[in-house]
């Protein structure tokens, strides 16, 4: 059984009348890539900031590496790396100087720091930009610098707060691969993002937040089980009559049937051999059809059904 790296118990944070975190609890185990999902204003960043003791909170308890987290718990802080939502670097320092500066806030040994900085630069692929000032870097390179500044000291717990915002697809892939690599090297990751596919791609466990509360937690498969939809089948078909649609709606396990723009969209709740059954019906009624698509519910479907909101609202 792996140890808990982060334990949050009954966390309450108020901004005057607004309750940002409402008895929020969470446990994150060593070696996990933990995804924290939620719509804007759900409390993700507030949770991260409370976790880091950057924000005070009204009630609750936070433990990291088994020790109570506080602003002056420098031993715990030493093992935490943070990649903030806003790029946090000095415009007046070069890429190398920035990474060296922030690494130096954790690592005092000069030789060790030199090695760590070199490794961080290689890790994010900024070898050719070490003498560049941040203003001369593209958005993607700047994000990579931000990451290097957060991980150069080789922390055991890495918190990434929407690190891929405004990043091109190539840089995003590079960043995601990097996060998985850090996890392979032994770091526990907490990852918040607006991009559902990223969370699906890299996270081993996910919590969904809304209005400061945890509304679901588990692996992707666990979360998929929480919703009604288990499968969606889409068939390209021309000339489907109302009678056909009514009959199809009555096929077992179909709970939603739509026919729009010559596309039949069927949503299933449970059941086996759903595809065979619908294809049999079409053949029996001599209905000609084109391409057929079948897909399992995505995290986005889970999110939509649980929160009733789109993530990018």
């Amino acid at each position: 059984m792996k140890n808990n790296v982060v334990v949050i118990e009954n966390l309450v944070k108020r901004y005057k009348e607004l309750i940002a975190l409402d008895h929020f609890s969470l446990e994150i185990k060593e070696g996990e890539v933990f995804g924290l999902l939620g719509p804007n204003g759900s409390g993700k960043t507030t949770t991260i900031n409370c976790l880091l003791s950057l924000l005070t909170y009204d009630k609750g308890n936070i433990e990291i590496f088994g020790k109570k987290m506080s602003p002056t718990n420098y031993e715990v802080k030493k093992n935490i790396g943070v990649i903030t939502q806003n790029v946090a670097v000095f415009d007046e320092l070069t890429v190398y100087e920035n990474i060296d500066y922030f690494c130096g806030l954790y690592v005092t040994d000069k030789n060790l720091r030199k090695q760590y900085v070199k490794e961080a630069i290689e890790f994010v692929g900024l070898e050719n930009y070490t003498k560049f000032y941040p203003k001369k870097l593209s958005g993607g390179l700047l994000r990579r610098l931000n990451i290097a500044c957060g991980i150069a000291h080789k922390p055991k717990l890495i918190i990434l707060d929407e690190p891929t915002v405004a990043v091109d697809p190539q840089s995003r892939n590079k960043i995601l691969e990097g996060i998985q690599e850090l996890n392979k090297q032994g770091a526990t990751i907490i990852y918040t993002s607006h991009y559902m596919e990223e969370v699906e791609q890299i996270c081993t466990r996910i919590a969904i937040m809304d209005k400061g509360k945890q509304i679901a937690i588990g692996t992707k498969q666990d979360l998929q089980k929480l919703i009604k939809n288990t499968e969606t089948i889409t068939i390209e078909i021309i000339g489907l009559s109302k009678e056909n649609i009514d009959e199809i709606s009555k096929i077992s396990h179909i709970y939603d049937c739509k026919y729009e723009n010559n596309r039949l969209i069927l949503k299933y709740s449970g059941g086996k051999h759903n595809l065979t059954r619908i294809l049999n019906y079409l053949q029996e009624n001599e209905l000609t059809f084109g391409r057929v698509f079948t897909e399992l519910p995505t995290l986005n479907d889970v999110f939509l059904e649980i929160t009733g909101k789109t993530l990018r609202d």
Binding site: L54, T72, Y74, E75, K77, F90, F102, C149
Partner: peptide, 24 residues
Amino acid sequence: INNQGNLSAVGARKCISSAKKYIT
């Protein structure tokens, strides 16, 4: 500004680091 977590991003990064505030 460069040392206050509520005033700048670099300030926040310093505050969450293991460097003692009075030293920075």
